[in-house]
Design a protein around this nucleic acid. Structure first.
Length: 206
DNA sequence: TGAATGATGCGCT
DNA sequence: GCGCATCATTCAT
C-alpha cells in the first residue's frame, strides 16, 4: 500500500510557531507500532515559544530535558509531567529560537477500537481529550523523545480534514504566561479538552 | 456541574 | 524540597 496522503515535510515545522500550531489543527498524527499503526486527527494544540515565553520549558536555557527544542525543527519533544503523564510536542522554528507545539487532543481514526471499548463509558471523543490521555492512548513515552517527524515511525499527514472554524484561547494549566492566546482548537470538535468556546472562534485563513 | 484533592517521578534551585 | 504544559475521583451544591 502506497502513501496516499502527503507527510508534513520539515519545512512545515520550520516556520513561526503560531502558524505551525494553527496549521496542525485538523492534521493526522500517525504512530507506527510493528506492522500496525495508530492514527488520530489533531484537534487541539498550544504554542510554547522560546525565551520570551515564561511558560516555555526553553525559557531558562538549555538542559538535558529540553535539549531537543534547541535543535532543528520537525522533531518530537516528549517529557514526563506530574510523575505519570507524558506530553507530546513538535519542535518548530530554527535552533536559535527554541520553540514547540504541544499536541493536546485528538479524535481517534484508526487503531483505537479496543481502547475505546475498554472505556467505562465508550466514547471516542473522550479517549484523547487531553495531552496526558492522548499520549497514554498512543503509548507515547520518553522513548519517543527526539524522533524525526520526517521519518516513518512518528509523523503527521495532511488528509484534508481541515476544521471549519479554529478557536483561540489562553493556554491551559500554566501559571505564568497565562495571558497569551496561544491555544488553538477545532471549534466544532467534541474531542477538545475543555473551554470549548474559548475566545470567539475565528475563521481559518488558508 | 463544579471545586478540591491525591497520585507520582523528576528536573531544577 | 518544590513545583509541574495532568487526570480521575471524591465531595459539595
Amino acid at each position: 500500500m502506497t502513501a496516499r496522503y502527503p507527510k508534513l515535510p520539515r519545512s512545515f515545522y520550520d516556520r513561526p510557531t503560531l502558524q505551525v500550531a494553527r496549521d496542525l489543527v485538523g492534521k493526522c498524527l500517525i504512530l507506527k507500532i510493528g506492522r500496525s499503526r495508530k492514527l488520530a486527527r489533531i484537534v487541539e494544540v498550544e504554542a510554547y515559544i522560546g525565551q520570551d515565553d515564561p511558560a516555555c520549558h526553553a525559557a531558562r536555557g538549555k538542559t538535558r530535558r529540553n535539549a531537543v527544542m534547541f535543535g532543528p525543527p520537525g522533531f518530537s519533544y516528549v517529557y514526563l509531567i506530574y510523575g505519570m503523564y507524558h506530553c507530546l510536542n513538535f519542535v518548530s522554528e530554527p535552533p536559535e529560537r527554541a520553540a514547540a507545539v504541544l499536541i493536546r487532543a485528538a479524535e481517534p481514526l484508526q487503531g483505537f477500537d479496543r481502547l475505546i471499548g475498554e472505556m467505562k463509558r465508550p466514547d471516542g471523543n473522550r479517549l484523547m481529550d487531553g495531552p496526558g490521555k492522548m499520549c497514554r492512548a498512543f503509548g507515547i513515552n520518553r522513548e519517543h523523545n527526539g524522533v524525526d517527524l520526517t521519518g516513518s515511525e512518528l509523523y503527521v499527514e495532511d488528509r484534508g480534514l481541515n476544521p471549519k472554524r479554529i478557536g483561540v484561547s489562553q493556554r491551559i494549566g500554566i501559571r505564568v504566561g497565562r495571558e497569551l492566546p496561544w491555544r488553538f482548537f477545532d471549534a466544532d470538535s467534541r474531542a477538545v479538552s475543555k473551554g470549548k468556546s474559548g475566545v470567539a472562534p475565528i475563521r481559518r485563513s488558508k
